[in-house]
Nucleic acid binder design. Structure first.
Lengths: 194, 194
DNA sequence: GCCTGAAGTAGACAGTGTCTACGCCTGCCT
DNA sequence: AGGCAGGCGTAGACACTGTCTACTTCAGGC
């Protein structure tokens, strides 16, 4: 049992997560969530004084979900770092594609209060996994590990963004993002061994 | 003279551009633009039937501005392709940082109608400049030129996004994005010659 | 038995995008 | 010259949003 499934606070977040997954970020209004939770439009205010607070809680759930997926991938895939990193990249991009609304919300800094909920810090464990793998694969002539990891993350994130935007396939002629992922990994970490 | 500076249509777009630059994407409401243009709230509807249409026109202006800046950079910088590409990257990121609201709007596919205004196609000339430089610098073992260019663009774009989000400096410890830009270029095109 | 305080309700307010009916004024046609 | 049609902008309405505030309701402790 999830702590308190009956608690309104948890129910509001759950409804919000469901809503953002199903209908996208713009559908997540306070009143709509209240409606679907079966309470009056003023009820959420007790737990989330402002819209930003509720959205931040929902985004937090998204980061938790993504982190869980990455951890599961790390558990399932074999220990070769390059293989693991490739799997991580795929997990990241699959998440962005499958839960586009949530992914968008998670990085809409204008809608979120990353300070209060330690939202940014929530993504650090995720970055740590990436940084660890990158450190193992880093060649002596590469940039320092954190920078290299940051550049690679930015690359993955950019692929996700631009792919969603629709211009990338148009420009590159690619029909899926796999080629871009391979290109990114090869670029940052050297060509795939054999 | 810009076609018709007095035309309401152009004035609305100009006010919108000014507004998004000054106060960010969320400030750009139909009614606020109408107010600042000195017309009634219903007036924009004649030229922009829906909010999306007006926002798309504003974003289009943003792409035009970015393209102009890149072209100016290409005119000013010396012909070495690597130098030019570095300058292009800096121009892109500077634009994103200096005009954050506009940059955000330009890639908010949920707010724009990229179809009607050929918005996506508007970014193609920009991509062509990038692709051309990349083609000159591509090593035989690299990915095909369009893919390589796409990956590099994604990298730049991701840096801009994540930097704006605030997590990148936190994770990498970098204090500016220069290291990331260098890392990205080195990764995709090989280390800087000497 | 009362009373305090938490929890949710309900109404108001300003703001938004969209729709519709209405004036105005210009330029054209007979 | 007179009238008329159409483009342009106004003004009011509607449903919706987030936020604020006053109110009910109800359980637990003194």
């Amino acid at each position: 049992m999830d702590a308190d499934e009956t608690g309104l606070r948890a129910r509001l977040v759950a409804v919000g997560v469901d809503l953002v997954l199903r209908e996208g970020q713009s559908a997540v209004s306070l009143r709509e969530i209240a409606r679907r939770a079966g309470v009056s439009h003023g009820a959420p205010r007790r737990y989330f004084p402002t819209h930003v607070d509720l959205l931040s809680a929902i985004a937090r759930e998204g980061f938790a979900d993504l982190t869980a997926r990455v951890e599961k991938t790390m558990r399932d895939v074999d220990p070769d770092p390059r293989t693991r990193l490739t799997a991580l990249a795929r997990t990241y991009l699959d998440f962005a594609a499958a839960h586009r609304g949530m992914f968008e919300l998670m990085f809409r800094h204008d809608l979120l209060d990353s300070g209060r909920l330690r939202l940014r810090e929530t993504s650090l464990p995720l970055f740590a996994v990436l940084a660890d793998l990158v450190a193992q694969l880093r060649r002596p002539t590469d940039a320092p590990a954190p920078v290299l990891a940051g550049a690679l993350w930015a690359n993955l994130h950019g692929i996700a963004q631009l792919w969603a935007w629709g211009s990338l396939p148009l420009a590159t002629g690619a029909t899926d993002d796999d080629a871009l992922v391979r290109a990114a990994l090869d670029a940052h970490l050297g060509p795939t061994p054999a």
